[in-house]
Design a binder for these strands. Structure first.
Lengths: 131, 131
DNA sequence: GTAATTGCAAAGCATTTGCAGTAAG
DNA sequence: CTTACTGCAAATGCTTTGCAATTAC
């Protein structure tokens, strides 16, 4: 557990914004000015593999990460890509009994919502960048 | 409606494999040997915008497209990324009444399953490439 | 004839990787 | 000490874009 890894984990757990690797790089750089983006990527991968953080599985030009690994659901703004948590998550369909031709086993479900965030709503045609 | 666009649409509607742009490029090239990958991308974007096809919203290194725009759900192989349709889709949560702080409106839900496909199951550690 | 579209090649981004030097245990 | 990790920079892979030539209508 290097200093870089612990700062990345700590900062990711502080926010609820589901940052991209680059967002996190900018956050972490305030405490570790010489950290490299490659190190951020390598540690995020390590932390996902060890189950300490989660990688969001929704499409978008960049990956987003979540310091909260408890089961919950997300809304993504269709304009800017910002992701928020659902506070009162609806029940997800049961995996039990689902069969798909060509698949041996089903190991997970994900329920994701698309929405328009407050910042994008006023000008719903043009995308507004996150933050 | 150019020949390129109609062949892309026709070939995408023929398959149920949710191909990537590059998969489709290889399929279409059998009929139009001089088509370029850029043209495939531009037409896929056009067809998504016009609602004739759908872009899958699940993460992965490349985008996947679907010629079937009717509401249905997908399973993705966590090893190779292959995507299949759910034949008997479970009910999706209702949008009605969902509220998320910071979001003005919720416009869609997606239910996605993760699984291990037949081809990957025998050797579940190593990813086997699609096709 | 005009506007939209094409093929090609180059550019753009996000992510990954090789490597020599550095830090952790 | 030894192994794992870092910073840097180059490489990769997918997607987008500029442009002159071509095609659709």
């Amino acid at each position: 557990m290097t200093r870089q890894r612990s700062v990345i984990l700590e900062e990711l757990r502080k926010v609820d914004t589901h940052p991209t690797a680059d967002d996190l790089y900018n956050i972490v750089r305030m405490r570790l000015p010489h950290i490299s983006l490659g190190t951020v990527y390598r540690n995020l991968e390590y932390l996902v593999a060890s189950g300490e953080i989660a990688r969001l599985e929704s499409a978008g030009s960049s990956m987003r990460f979540d310091g909260d690994v408890s089961g919950h659901q997300h809304v993504r703004c269709v304009h800017c890509g910002r992701v928020a948590d659902l506070v009162y998550p609806p029940a997800v369909p049961a995996l039990h009994g689902i069969r798909v031709e060509g698949f041996d086993k089903i190991v997970g479900v994900r329920v994701e919502f698309d929405g328009v965030c407050e910042r994008c709503a006023p000008r719903a045609d043009a995308a507004s960048p996150p933050e």
